[in-house]
């Protein structure tokens, strides 16, 4: 742990770089594709399955997670040298929990019906492994600004998968998109019905499984041999 911290600290002293240098931009773009939190790192699945029956809650969830991850990374990175190693988990969780409570209160004040629909899953952002996983893996050993970008990147990478799954599930499960009808009536008249399986979380498992399949088929480096 301390060794990793030292080596990154040395690496960072050597290059004082611009705010949006290529390396910093990669922090945001990598999690969108080859280092995606859901399909590669296997983090943050619970909420991905639960909130994706419709696109709107999925979008709001993605925004909340991005905000929480980015600011938790920023705060932990700022105080990383003052956290004793033994109790670091509790410190991290207190920071995350505080941010989540803030987000929860804001949602209740601004979009009450969506907050009602998301119910316990806003609270479960605390235990969303993405947030704590990134804190452990990145923010504990990096400067505040790269950590902040890493948080945004991972939040967005999570959001991309969330929205993809939600679009598929809403279109095929309910025939709507963001609440508007997209499958015209004559198709229903011809005997088409909404797919009941798409409404269950099991469909999200299948869709994510297939996304993983496509992603790894396109990039053989990611293939899991075991």
């Amino acid at each position: 742990m301390s060794q990793a911290t030292e080596s990154t600290a040395v690496a960072q002293q050597q290059n004082k770089e611009a705010l949006f240098s290529p390396k910093n931009r990669r922090l945001v773009t990598d999690p969108l594709t080859d280092n995606n939190p859901i399909t590669i790192q296997v983090l943050g699945l619970c909420s991905a399955l639960a909130v994706t029956t419709q696109v709107k809650p999925a979008l709001i969830m993605a925004i909340c997670v991005t905000v929480v991850t980015a600011f938790a990374n920023l705060i932990i990175s700022l105080i990383r040298n003052g956290i004793p190693n033994r109790i670091r988990m509790i410190v991290q969780l207190v920071v995350i929990a505080t941010l989540v409570v803030l987000v929860d209160q804001v949602l209740r004040a601004v979009v009450y019906d969506v907050s009602k629909q998301l119910s316990v899953f806003i609270g479960l952002i605390i235990t969303n492994c993405i947030v704590m996983g990134r804190l452990e893996a990145f923010a504990m050993g990096n400067k505040p600004w790269p950590s902040f970008l890493d948080g945004i990147g991972n939040g967005l990478g999570y959001g991309v998968i969330l929205v993809m799954v939600a679009v598929l599930r809403e279109v095929f499960g309910a025939g709507t998109l963001l609440g508007f009808k997209v499958i015209p009536q004559f198709i229903y008249d011809a005997g088409y019905t909404n797919n009941g399986v798409m409404v269950t979380p099991a469909a999200a498992m299948f869709i994510i499984g297939i996304i993983i399949w496509i992603q790894r088929a396109r990039n053989p480096k990611l293939v899991d041999i075991s």
């Binding site: 296997v42 269950t200 099991a202 498992m205 299948f206 399949w213 790894r216 899991d224």
Partner: peptide, 27 residues
């Protein structure tokens, strides 16, 4: 581990699909 699964689906991908099937069974 002993079955013929397409390489990109091995490991994580098939685990997702199996969990989905188990979930449907539990329904």
């Amino acid at each position: 581990r002993y079955s013929a699964i397409p390489a990109p689906l091995r490991g994580l991908g098939i685990a997702f699909i199996i969990t989905g099937l188990m979930g449907i069974a539990f329904m």
